[in-house]
Write a protein that binds this DNA or RNA. Sequence first.
DNA 1: CGAATTGTTGATTCCCCTCAAACTGGGTGG
DNA 2: CCACCCAGTTTGAGGGGAATCAACAATTCG
Lengths: 263, 263
Amino acid sequence: MSAVFGNLARPPEPRIKLKAETSLPLPDTSLMMRCSACLHKDTCFPCGIAVNDARQLDAFRFGQRKVKTGQTLYHEGDYFQFLYMVRSGTFKSRLLLADGREQVNGFCMAGDILGLDGVAYGTHASSAIALEDAEVCVISYSHLTELAAGNAGLLQVLARMMSREILREHRLITLLGSMNAEERLTAFLLNLSHRLKTRGYSAVEFHLRMSRAEIGSYLGMTLETVSRTFSAFQQLHLLEVDKRHIRLLDIDGLKRALKTSLH
Amino acid sequence: MSAVFGNLARPPEPRIKLKAETSLPLPDTSLMMRCSACLHKDTCFPCGIAVNDARQLDAFRFGQRKVKTGQTLYHEGDYFQFLYMVRSGTFKSRLLLADGREQVNGFCMAGDILGLDGVAYGTHASSAIALEDAEVCVISYSHLTELAAGNAGLLQVLARMMSREILREHRLITLLGSMNAEERLTAFLLNLSHRLKTRGYSAVEFHLRMSRAEIGSYLGMTLETVSRTFSAFQQLHLLEVDKRHIRLLDIDGLKRALKTSLH
DNA sequence: CGAATTGTTGATTCCCCTCAAACTGGGTGG
DNA sequence: CCACCCAGTTTGAGGGGAATCAACAATTCG
């Protein structure tokens, strides 16, 4: 297979810019985050760089941005310039339809990357809206690709992130294409529970950051059906629900109810 | 009917001269494709490389593979090693559910890239099955990233391809999450028409390569509803349908029917 | 406090699924 | 050649799950 490409001389690798400040649009270094101290350095872009390469690690110094509840990080149609890594808080990603309705296509929490759909055409294809006060790292895409063009590890990380985004959407398509209301809500809750667990929160008791309408949009059903399905689950003693407070009582029961697996 | 559908003009298939070059140590060059002569070089990976850089262009010499109707290019769970560029024919991409059902999540035709969902975890997350005899270019992912690590243009092309895949799935999610059966089939037909047109085929008259069941799986509805909706459209004089032969009579009418835009 | 937002629950409607039967065209083998 | 089968498609009848419409409670907020 390597013979396909033969032993062709590779072009000289461009020297990596170590002074990140020159490429970043935010010159105020006091607002910059040093990645080596970041909680998410093992999943965010720095993980594409050899850990012992301190100088390279320091090249990753991102600007930060605080977003308050209800504010948008970016809008559909906005010029694409940055990726965002969620440091804290929760976002919804949504697409606007011609008739004004919205289609929620994802909920992002700490460690997740936002904005990858803007790469294709240089324009954001969705909006990202904070569901609670949040903080993000602002990652210059041009700077990132500049670094990745000289760093195979970083390139891999970027590619894998995009591919994971594709897989996430695969699962949502499967859910929307072949599950009924109960299965959809079950899949949603189990997924949320899992993600909270990996972030150090309780897997069985949590607070929903999104409204019934947003859950409904995400799961392709009405807010009334979401509410009714919650009530039905409560009557089956699968969970306790009080507005946005959720306590899962029977995770195994929920998993059994989820006949159609999402893997 | 044969008069109606008989003269489907296929675009001329350029015969590629497969001249074995002795200067490069490539094995079995008869099976290799030289990208500089390829119909798809402006959309496939070579477009990431400066057109005047002949040596780099020649680095793109991919193996080819023929796939017969019904055969799989790769299976869910297969070790991920290659991307595939469809040279001719049509594929469906599908995800298998735990209970044996399948969820079709895409139809790929000439120029499309297959396999990007394998990047994330090194394992194919879907299967690709030929709906008609097909030919693909086999692209070693490890060599691609090797080249991309030294070539910013190629890196951009790879990133944009993955992002476009994300956008494709966005549109499908929107369709599944907020459209009724008529809108879904309309969106499907208009999208197919558009893609055929950009490939040089008729935008109004074509042959479906997929069954009603496959369309239904893709659109999140049953094969019976697909069939019924086709019949309803015919009664409204929006199109003519005879099994898999389709003639769109009123594209504007279809577009009006598609109240919920997919952009 | 009144207004607005969010969530719950009920009654009714309807879109689409399910089940079933019939038809078509293509392939096969006696 | 014809009978047969089979996969794919069409069409019908009926039922069910979720949408729609509506009323009301609980919170939040100006």
